[in-house]
């Protein structure tokens, strides 16, 4: 087992653990923190998978911005106190386990490498060597995917306006 694999499996285990804890903790704050762990572990996995720039963004955007927002809202609504559990009863647990498990097997069935086409080797690694880690991602983003990129800005603007309108008590 190479070092890469060891790192990969370690952080995979951390991610899955974080996810599992996230969905089972009673307190929303605990859930959020376990989710942060999963996000960090995923950032590490991204590094292993030759997506260093994405990994950085993952830490900045998800762990740094989105999760903070979540925590802010939890605190704003004063949900951090221990209250009645929001976990469903045994029936809910059974349904969740059953459907989740079924979905997992379905996804595994579809997610075999052969179904993803023949892997063409280390395409990302080559691109990064030719253009640099950021350049490999930035060039297509600002040329081929320019229009979706610009539309994303519109989306974010709309989200900002929407959020303000929704959250403000009085306009």
């Amino acid at each position: 087992m190479t070092l890469t694999q060891i790192v990969f499996w370690t952080f995979s285990a951390l991610a899955v653990l974080g996810a599992a804890m996230c969905i089972t903790r009673r307190s929303p704050v605990a859930s959020a923190l376990w989710l942060v762990q999963t996000l960090f572990a995923l950032a590490a996995l991204f590094v292993v998978l030759d997506a260093q720039f994405v990994a950085v963004l993952q830490v900045l955007v998800y762990a740094g911005a989105i999760m903070v927002l979540f925590l802010f809202v939890i605190m704003l609504l004063n949900l951090g106190r221990p209250g009645p559990s929001d976990l469903k009863g045994p029936v809910g647990l059974a349904v969740a386990t059953l459907l989740g498990g079924l979905l997992f097997f379905q996804l595994l069935r579809g997610a075999t490498p052969s179904a993803a086409g023949t892997p063409a080797g280390d395409t990302m690694a080559q691109l990064q060597q030719e253009q640099g880690i950021v350049g490999a991602v930035a060039r297509p983003l600002f040329s081929q995917y320019l229009i979706p990129f610009e539309i994303t800005s519109v989306l974010l603007l709309a989200a900002i306006v929407g959020a303000v309108v929704l959250a403000k008590r009085k306009l």
Partner: peptide, 11 residues
């Protein structure tokens, strides 16, 4: 639940 059931059927 219904939604996931539907997704499963599609898959």
């Amino acid at each position: 639940v219904l939604f996931v059931g539907g997704v499963l059927a599609v898959l």
